[in-house]
Design a binder for these strands. Structure first.
Lengths: 252, 252
DNA sequence: TAATTCACTTGATGCAAATCAATGCACATT
DNA sequence: AATGTGCATTGATTTGCATCAAGTGAATTA
């Protein structure tokens, strides 16, 4: 499962773009929401040195599978991924979606084996961060250590939010909450919070939210009828943000 | 919210017992499943030095509340605690139960604020571990760092299991799975895996599993009728372990 | 001893979402 | 143009669990 590539390959006349795997942490436009956050520039250089950048992965390819040896965590550079667990009776449970700047794979640390699988929802590029190097480096850089602890803790709190959503909220509330989450994560990356393309299928949405495809589809139709959204397949436009928040039943 | 006590208080003619707060990491019978795991004895001493032991907390007392400043994580020494989130509309979602040897509070790291509340289900004692000291120490002790990363990762994987349970499993499967989880955690502490007392109420069980009290009660009655269990209020005896596993729909 | 409370159980009914089934639509293949 | 395939939508029916309501038993108090 090695995705390392030679860094020296293809170095000239190459404009940075979404999938560009030559961009370094120092000049990556995601570094304010990724691991380098709060590092000094010479610390960033050291972090940069341990990071392996991969060729873009095509839609549907796996980054790792449940049970694989755990070696690295991954930062999404472009595209979107989903993480999912397979139940004993063979069904899938999507446990998270990962957008550019976000880190996945931390669930593998506990048993040195990936506890979930991760695959791309569209063409995507990732930075591979060997965990043993990251651990060594974070023992030397308090800021890095703190940031990584925070990232793991963030994963825990995100999971708890999902637990609550699944346990306490209606289909309408779940779908509205997911749309708001995606909207907020787009805003963090300076993209539109009201007009975006869902990178995942209805099946994945339903799977993540504990609903069937049909229910997801019905909720979206209803939201469109209520003029909260304009839905065109994967293209979503939020027309009435307070209305959506109200449907999600959240305070903020 | 300080629960520190003077270590020198009450030091003589004191036999160690479940709630004894004088026991140190080095001679704590839980140290094989708690933080000290895999530390050398002089490292254990250093860890021991930063740990604050508290008087036992009475049933229903809070260790921390959602929104409190995050200072420490806690190891359960005796008793049981629950962690829960409060939803925007004021309802509770229990996110976990914590038995002796287990660590809670790690969800506070990400925002420096506790993301959930924790209260005791019965008289309990905890060890308070100031996080800043733990972070400093773990930068110096690779084994401690690794172990703490693993604990956090474990929290993530446990949450993912709960997510899957809530999203994909029936009421029967959820209740059976919780019983198996408690059974396994008892076994880890060398207690009976087949005969134990549930420390939490039916309300808490239902809340944790996304079910109403009535449903929990019915499932337990059904399991008794099927002769999988013997239920006497909180006292549980598992009569047919393969049967319970079968009901939970899990492989192991 | 009776009364109050609390945690739990049991039964009857209703509803939200699953399931089953059909159809529509975009896009690729031939 | 015809055919297939994957994804999304919509409608009809079923069902598992919530809800509502009442009842039990043990512990606590009067």
């Amino acid at each position: 499962m090695s995705i390392y590539i030679s860094k020296s390959a293809q170095d000239d006349g190459f404009k940075p773009c979404a999938h560009d795997y030559q961009v370094h942490c120092g000049n990556c436009r995601l570094n304010s929401i990724c691991l380098p956050l709060s590092l000094e520039s010479d610390d960033i250089q050291q972090l940069d040195d341990i990071i392996q950048r991969s060729k873009p992965l095509k839609k549907g390819q796996h980054l790792y599978r449940e049970g694989d040896d755990f070696q690295s965590v991954y930062a999404v550079r472009s595209g979107t991924l989903k993480a999912y667990k397979t139940t004993d009776d063979g069904r899938e449970q999507v446990t998270g979606f990962y957008f550019p700047g976000e880190i996945l794979g931390m669930d593998g640390i506990s048993k040195n084996t990936h506890a979930s699988s991760a695959s791309t929802l569209e063409t995507s590029a990732v930075c591979e961060i060997p965990f043993s190097s990251l651990a060594k480096l974070s023992a030397l850089m308090p800021n890095l250590q703190r940031h990584f602890f925070q990232l793991m803790s963030r994963e825990i709190t995100d999971d708890q939010v999902l637990i609550t959503l699944l346990s306490k909220n209606s289909a309408d509330e779940r779908v509205a909450a997911l749309l708001l989450s995606i909207s907020a994560r787009n805003a963090r990356r300076k993209l539109s919070s009201t007009h975006f393309r869902l990178p995942m299928s209805r099946v994945d949405i339903g799977n993540y939210l504990g609903l069937t495809v049909e229910t997801v589809s019905r909720v979206l139709s209803r939201m469109q009828k209520m003029e909260l959204l304009c839905v065109d397949n994967k293209e979503i436009e939020i027309l009435d943000m307070p209305g959506v928040r109200n449907m999600a039943n959240v305070a903020s």
